[in-house]
Design a protein around this nucleic acid. Structure first.
Lengths: 112, 112
DNA sequence: TGACATACCTAGTAAGACTATGTATAATAA
DNA sequence: TTATTATACATAGTCTTACTAGGTATGTCA
């Protein structure tokens, strides 16, 4: 079986929580939607990551009952988490830029 | 200790060999240069990857003596390797695009 | 001569994302 | 009514991959 190769998982998870609290299952669905199904994150990936983010104080969890009667565990992005997101974002931009530089043969390569 | 977090290693390694054969040590130096030292690939990462690419027929190795008298092991990108590079490139573009989509809140998010 | 850069290699470790499995409830289909 | 599916959370164990740490060896320069 092939791996989904989702890296930068924390960046993606944190960015989902901007402006809206979400519960785990919802995040999986949303991530798939926003990425046009490039990222089909597995539960076995997401939940441990969420627990880690909570332990570090980047997100806060609270339980809330859905209209259906089911209980859901919502996650809220803390101020500290917003800072972490900013850093992860910068790291991603640097990383992606560097990959593109290498693909083009180096940042200072002669323009075509 | 922190990991360097170089992913898409094969993409980077293959792309270095476009238009020029290189030896391992040179690839590490070149990769650092082209990425403005974002990627300081370790020998323990590179050499196993090169051996894997060779086994799959994506690169071919040959030994050649440098003017200094030292022997170097050069790697050449095969036709098959060029195909693999094309695929890895497309995967990267899809991946990077999807990350950016998620960061923006979804591909079809309303423009600001 | 000693230190450093060059040049290659591999065994073992650590991290991260996965598979597989478990629990449980609500909605829907048969 | 019963079975199946979707929802919802969780974790143990596996696998891949990049890393650390160590080894070997040669050329250059102080």
């Amino acid at each position: 079986m092939k791996k989904n190769a989702i890296e930068h998982t924390r960046l993606l998870v944190l960015s989902l929580l901007v402006g809206e609290d979400m519960y785990g299952y919802q995040m999986i669905v949303e991530l798939a939607r926003r990425s046009n199904h490039t990222f089909d994150m597995k539960e076995g990936t997401l939940y441990p990551v969420l627990h880690g983010l909570e332990q570090e104080g980047f997100v806060e969890a609270y339980r809330q009952e859905a209209p259906s009667g089911r209980e859901r565990k919502y996650y809220h992005l803390t101020r500290k988490g917003q800072g972490a997101l900013r850093e992860e974002k910068q790291a991603w931009e640097r990383y992606a830029g560097a990959v593109n530089d290498v693909l083009r043969g180096g940042a200072e390569a002669e323009p075509v």
